[in-house]
């Protein structure tokens, strides 16, 4: 049963089919029981709170509270100054650090590459939706790398892109001299981002296909009857109808680039060569774990959170605007 289309208004029939047996047997069993006592009633009143308690406790203590703690932490010092307030000292140091500057520059690169990372799965999903020969097969194959760990993906590409590795061997046989894919500061970041897009476009593809499932096929048929070309169909029918899905993919792809490339960076380049493949998340880990600068790392965390907040607010703005258009 797909989880995407459970509307309350159409549910009773299907829910009855799935759960009818459970409901009646439960009713029978408990029907024979004596009525609830007063103490039982009070326990019942607290039952909803007890049910949500574990989830709320864990989320508050290990998500929301650490966020505040971290922001607070970013205004204190490291090492000998541990615990004393240093104002914006960490932030000043952060923005003066060439490695963090590179990390921010790379975030800019990710923003520039974002349209590509969204367009590729969007176009492929369109073709799959239009039932290109073998569409089921493509769907399964394309989605596969998305479930692999970045570490596995990175390790495999380490192998393929090694200086004395297979890719250079193939290129060499065409007379193209060996390229140091992961060792050249001008190339390495593009390789890592390329591998990230290779590994995750299947995720966006599935989201796009879920969006296509809600598309009214009559619209496409009408356009087809009117003799629209594929390009016209994409521009005038599919993109307007899927605007919400497209926005969602934009935001989740951006968040994915900001928060799930650590594994690739860690195994493929370790931030090198010459610090050219740093991203904020790698910088945070490095300062916290290797450099023993937790307060500086907290400042970088706060900046990363602000970047993500901007991405999130942008989405809300876009959603509001598309809501008005509806």
């Amino acid at each position: 049963m797909p989880m995407g289309n459970t509307q309350p208004s159409v549910r009773p029939a299907s829910a009855g089919r799935a759960g009818g047996a459970a409901v009646t047997s439960a009713a029978h069993r408990s029907g024979a029981r004596p009525r609830r006592t007063r103490g039982g009633l009070r326990a019942e009143r607290y039952a909803p709170y007890i049910l949500v308690l574990p989830a709320v406790l864990i989320i508050v203590l290990l998500r929301l509270y650490p966020l505040l703690l971290g922001v607070n932490f970013s205004f204190t010092g490291d090492g000998e100054q541990n615990g004393t307030a240093v104002g914006f000292g960490n932030y000043r140091e952060l923005f003066a650090d060439p490695l963090f500057q590179t990390a921010l520059k790379n975030v800019g690169l990710l923003v520039l590459l974002l349209p590509v990372a969204v367009a590729i799965p969007g176009l492929l999903a369109t073709f799959i939706y239009l039932r290109v020969p073998g569409h089921r097969f493509y769907r399964s194959v394309y989605f596969f790398p998305a479930v692999l760990s970045p570490v596995i993906v990175g390790a495999i590409f380490n192998l393929l892109l090694a200086f004395d590795g297979p890719l250079n061997a193939v290129l060499g046989s065409f007379g193209i001299g060996p390229v140091d894919w992961l060792g050249d500061p001008d190339i390495a970041m593009f390789m890592v981002v390329g591998v990230h897009i290779w590994a995750t476009f299947g995720m966006a593809l599935v989201v796009f296909l879920a969006g296509f499932a809600t598309l009214d096929a009559a619209l496409l048929d009408a356009a087809r009857v009117d003799g629209a070309t594929l390009r016209q169909v994409v521009w005038h029918v599919i993109i307007p109808a899927l605007s919400r899905t497209i926005q969602f993919v934009f935001v989740t792809t951006m968040i994915g680039m900001l928060t799930s490339m650590f594994g690739l960076l860690y195994i493929m380049t370790s931030g090198g060569p010459e610090g050219s493949t740093y991203l904020p998340e790698f910088y945070i880990w490095k300062q916290q774990g290797q450099m023993n600068r937790p307060a500086l790392a907290s400042a970088a965390s706060t900046i990363l959170f602000m970047i993500m907040l901007v991405v999130g607010l942008l989405q809300i703005k876009l959603l509001e605007r598309s809501g008005k258009e509806d």
């Binding site: 989320i59 932490f73 928060t259 904020p280 916290q288 790392a297 959170f305």
Partner: peptide
Amino acid sequence: AGLFIPFQVIMVPLA
């Protein structure tokens, strides 16, 4: 709200 707080952001205090 927890959805919008990635691990990277709270890594230091959580550790």
